[in-house]
Amino acid sequence: MREGYEVIYQKPKTLTDNKMHYCPGCIHGTMHKIFMELIEEMDLQEKTVGVCPVGCSVFAYDYMDVDMQEAAHGRAAAVATAIKRMLPDRIVFSYQGDGDLAAIGTAETLHACNRGENFLFIFINNGIYGMTGGQMAPTTLEGQKTTTSPFGRDKKNSGSPLKMTEMVTPLDGVAFTARVSGNTPANVRKAKRVFKKALEIQQQNIGTQFVEVVSNCPSGWKCTPVESMEWIVEKAIPYYPLGIFKEPGK
């Protein structure tokens, strides 16, 4: 530290020094940071085991300084299920995108929730397959153009965008569901509070925690980061409303 300077802000020690590969403006980095801040603040680093998906966050284990497993595409919920069952006193989370959690892994997601597996789903919903180059996801909005819906998502052909949080909320096994975003500083702070609540619920061992993040993909959406934040406000949040959908005692 240089003389006359003081630290007023730094990244959590639970994030590594590796340079993130995420595109400029991507919300992944923000979510990594606030979640790992919580792991540090709640002193959970030694107890936490995470699962990364296949998708943009496939390398999350390069950044999150906790023990981690890389799952096959869509199977993070099955992997996390077994980790938690084998190590019930650990904090377990899966960090998945929409193609992973809501398309190829829908069965694993639903059944883990239905069994009430006591781990946290962090579901990053940016409505597109980012890593593979911008193809349509199950959560792509109606009319939204992607490389595999070049004329806009057509409901008649592809169905309506899946609202996963609303789907898992009624399941008895699920203790906590919420949808947050990372598009504004206020929403980032809210998201962190929601993650904290989810981790506290995991420590109470009362059911699955499911937090969806309305996210962005400037590269896949073919827009600037600022425009992507505008899209979240104008298009995504109206379809994917934010808030806590289910919490114990309420």
Binding site: V49, V51, Q69, A71, A72, R75, A78, V79, A80, T81, A82, I83, R85, M86, L87, A107, E108, L110, H111, R115
Partner: peptide, 22 residues
């Protein structure tokens, strides 16, 4: 611990997670 999984796809991936948890 025994879990009747939702499919063989899930079973083998539970095996992955459980084995990796030691």
């Amino acid at each position: 611990t025994l879990i009747q999984a939702e499919s063989e796809v899930a079973s083998i991936n539970m095996v992955y997670g459980g084995a990796a948890a030691g």
